[in-house]
Nucleic acid binder design. Structure first.
Lengths: 235, 235
DNA sequence: CTCCATGTTGGAACTGCGCTCCAAACCTGT
DNA sequence: ACAGGTTTGGAGCGCAGTTCCAACATGGAG
C-alpha cells in the first residue's frame, strides 16, 4: 500500500487566502456562523487543514477576513453617482450595510463581535469613514464630528443587527409574513400587567416594513444631529 | 476498589437552576463568553455534567438564562423613584443597560445574538416595554410608537455593544486611557488618502467620555422623535 | 538535465468541547 | 424499613480547532 495517494496533479486552481475567504463566505451564507468549520472548508476546497492554516492563521482570523470582505464590498457598491444631499448619502451607506446583513445574516453577530473585540480592526474605520465624510458635509461643527458619527454608526449597526433575524429563513416574503405574525401573536399573549405597551404595538409589528423603519430611525438621528448641532456656515 | 467514591454527604447547598445560572454569570464575567464551559461549571460547582444538564438543557439555554438574569436585574434597578420627565426615564433605562454591559462585557454579543436569533425570547419584550412606556409618555402619536421605540432600542443596544470593548480590561481609568490612546494612535496612522475623516477625529477619540457620548446619541434620537412626531395632546 | 532549497500541501493525531447515558446515591411517603 | 421517583457525578462518544510532519511541487544553481 502506497504511503500517499495524493492527487497526481497539484490543484488546477492554486489555493490562496482569497479563495479561502471566498469559500468561507459561501459556507457562512449557506449554513450560518456555525457552518464555517475547518473540516467543511477542507472538503469544499478538496485540501487538508494544513493548507488552510498555512494561509490563514486560525478560524477567528478567517471570520474577520470574511466580515471585512463583505463589508468592503457593501460599502464599495453605492458610491458610484453622488450628487445627492449628505442625508441621502448617509441613507445609501446605511442601506448598503442593511442589505449586506440581510443577505449575509451571520454578518450581524460577526460585526458586533468584531467591533466590541477591537475597534482597531479594519472594519470599523471603513464604516466610520463612509459615514463621517457625510457628517462633515452636513456642516456639523468639527468638535461634534466624532459624537455625531458615532451615534449614526451605533444606530446603523444596532438596527441592522436586529433585523438580521427576519432574513434568516429562506423565503423573501412568505416566511417573513409568517415570522412577523408569529412574533406579533407572541407579544399579544404577554402578561397585560407587565407588558401593556408591548401588547399595544403587537399589531404594528405585523404591518411594518423593515427598510422603512430602518430609514425612519436614521431620520430620527439625522434630525437630532442637525437640530442640536446646526451647520456653522460652509464646510 | 469501590465502584464509587462519591462524597459522603450530598451537597450542603442543593444544586438548582438558579445556582447554576449564578455560577454561569460569574464564569462569564471572569473569562468572557468562551469561559463558560460545562467543564468549568462542573468544577466550580463540584459536580458532574449530568447534574447540570438535568437542570438546564444545553449550553445555549444557559447563556440565554444568564443574559436574561443580568438584563432583568439591570432594568429593575433604576425604577425606584420616578417623577422625572420621560426623557430622563429613557436615559435612566438606557444607562442601566449601558452599565450592565460595561460590567458584563459578554452581554453585548450575547444580546445581539439572542435578539437576532428570536425576538420571541423574554429579553426583547423586557427592554422594549421599559422604553416603550416612556415613548408613550412622551406623547408620540400611537401609530409611531413601534417605530420610535424600535429606533431607541436599536441605538441603545448598538451603542452599548460597541462600548463593551472599553470595559474589557480591568482597570477603571488607567487602562482605559491607554486603550483610547492606542486606538487614537492607530487611527492617526491610517492612509490619509482613504481615511481623511477618521484621521481628523482621532484626537477626539482620546478625549471623549463613553457615557456622555452615549447620552448624546440618545438625545439625538429623542430630539428626532419629538421633532418628527410631535405630541398630539395629552397621552 | 539534475539536484537541492524553498515554499506549499494534505492527512494523522492531539486536545478540549458539548452532550448522552447510566448506575449509584439521595429523599419522600408509607 | 423499604419502594418509588428524583437528583447526582462520571465515563465516554462524536466533533470541533489546531499542530505536526512527511510528501509533493517548483524554480534557480551547477
Amino acid at each position: 500500500m502506497a504511503t500517499r495517494t495524493r492527487q497526481s496533479q497539484r490543484r488546477t486552481e492554486a489555493l490562496s487566502r482569497e479563495r479561502i475567504v471566498e469559500a468561507a463566505v459561501e459556507l457562512l451564507d449557506a449554513a450560518g456562523a456555525g457552518g464555517l468549520t475547518v473540516r467543511a472548508l477542507t472538503e469544499r476546497l478538496t485540501t487538508g487543514p494544513g493548507a488552510i492554516y498555512w494561509h490563514v492563521g486560525n478560524r477567528g482570523e478567517l471570520l474577520d477576513a470574511a466580515t471585512d470582505a463583505v463589508v468592503a464590498a457593501a460599502l464599495a457598491t453605492e458610491s458610484a453617482e453622488a450628487p445627492d444631499t449628505p442625508q441621502d448619502e448617509i441613507r445609501a451607506v446605511a442601506l448598503g450595510l442593511f442589505d449586506a446583513i440581510t443577505e449575509h445574516p451571520w454578518l450581524a453577530t460577526q460585526l458586533a463581535m468584531q467591533l466590541s473585540r477591537s475597534p482597531l480592526g479594519s472594519v470599523t474605520p471603513r464604516i466610520f469613514e463612509s459615514i463621517g465624510q457625510q457628517v462633515r458635509a452636513l456642516g456639523v461643527p468639527e468638535r461634534n464630528w466624532f459624537t455625531a458619527t458615532s451615534a449614526l454608526v451605533h444606530y446603523i449597526l444596532g438596527a441592522a443587527g436586529q433585523n438580521a433575524a427576519n432574513a434568516r429563513v429562506l423565503g423573501p416574503d412568505v416566511d417573513r409574513a409568517e415570522f412577523l405574525a408569529a412574533a406579533s401573536r407572541a407579544w399579544e399573549e404577554l402578561d397585560p400587567e407587565d407588558y401593556p405597551f408591548t401588547r399595544a404595538v403587537a399589531d404594528q409589528v405585523r404591518e411594518h416594513d423593515d427598510r422603512e423603519q430602518f430609514l425612519a430611525g436614521i431620520d430620527f438621528v439625522l434630525t437630532g444631529i442637525t437640530t442640536l448641532h446646526p451647520p456653522t456656515g460652509p464646510q
